[in-house]
């Protein structure tokens, strides 16, 4: 097969929630998506349109959907918890709007978190974590705890954590949503640099600057991508 490698292939995704008295709320309604290796895809849409939901499905965090998802050659629908967890551990990296770092623990220890759940027994974990911190420009702050880092630095620690296992794709949910303009610019620049190094990125966003950095922009409306 020629052409770029397919990293994500999602077909006919349907995700509905029980919405109390009003019955079902269908958030994803026959959504399909393909992402090739090396792409930087931005997904935009109104608040509540289902962007986070889509990201959770693609990253193997959500299992309550119908449809087929293949990421890095692995069919996710139907995998059991252990296999799905292993997939999250090795194949994707999540970056969240509110960083979600472990408090009271050094940046290095935060970056090492995926290793604690990994079945892969490799040495030099700490060196690997330091390398990830270096990639986001925080090598000097390895020993600091999140409480003593700025918002931008925290998000970069979170990105280092997502990079730790050398994932095939980075899934980012409003990664600049909690940052001021200047810091957000830095983080976007970091994503751009990482993408130029070959990393595939899918980012959900409201923000123009992230949309501008992306190589492709998709809009989620009415549960479908266009």
């Amino acid at each position: 097969m020629s052409g770029p490698e397919r990293v994500i292939e999602a077909r006919h995704l349907v995700r509905a929630y029980d919405d109390g008295a009003r019955g079902q709320l269908t958030v994803l309604d026959d959504a399909s998506l393909e992402v090739n290796a090396g792409e930087f895809v931005a997904i935009v849409g109104r608040s509540g349109s289902g962007k986070s939901t889509l990201l959770h499905v693609l990253g193997g965090l959500d299992t309550g959907y119908r449809g087929q998802v293949t990421v890095a050659g692995l069919r996710l629908d139907g995998l059991d918890d252990a296999a799905l967890s292993r997939f999250r551990n090795e194949t994707v990296g999540f970056v969240f709007q509110s960083f979600h770092l472990l408090s009271g623990v050094s940046a290095l220890e935060n970056v090492l978190l995926p290793a604690r759940f990994s079945a892969r027994r490799v040495g030099g974990l700490e060196g690997q974590a330091r390398q990830a911190l270096e990639r986001v420009g925080l090598a000097a702050h390895a020993a600091r705890s999140p409480g003593r880092l700025s918002g931008g630095e925290r998000q970069r620690v979170a990105i280092a954590r997502a990079l730790f296992s050398s994932p095939r794709v980075l899934l980012c949910d409003e990664p600049t949503g909690n940052l001021d303009t200047a810091t957000a610019d830095e983080v976007v620049a970091l994503f751009k640099a990482l993408n130029q190094q070959g990393l595939t990125i899918v980012a959900v966003t409201h923000e123009d600057r992230l949309r501008a950095a992306a190589s492709r922009v998709l809009t989620l409306t009415g549960g479908k991508l266009s």
């Binding site: 990253g59 965090l61 918890d81 252990a82 967890s85 292993r86 999250r88 551990n89 090795e90 999540f94 969240f96 979600h100 770092l101 472990l102 978190l113 995926p114 604690r116 759940f117 990994s118 954590r161 296992s165």
Partner: peptide, 16 residues
């Protein structure tokens, strides 16, 4: 709760 959720996101299984 949040920490445990993050652990799930970075690859913790329920058993772990």
């Amino acid at each position: 709760e949040k920490e445990l959720g993050v652990m799930r996101a970075v690859g913790a299984s329920r058993a772990q």
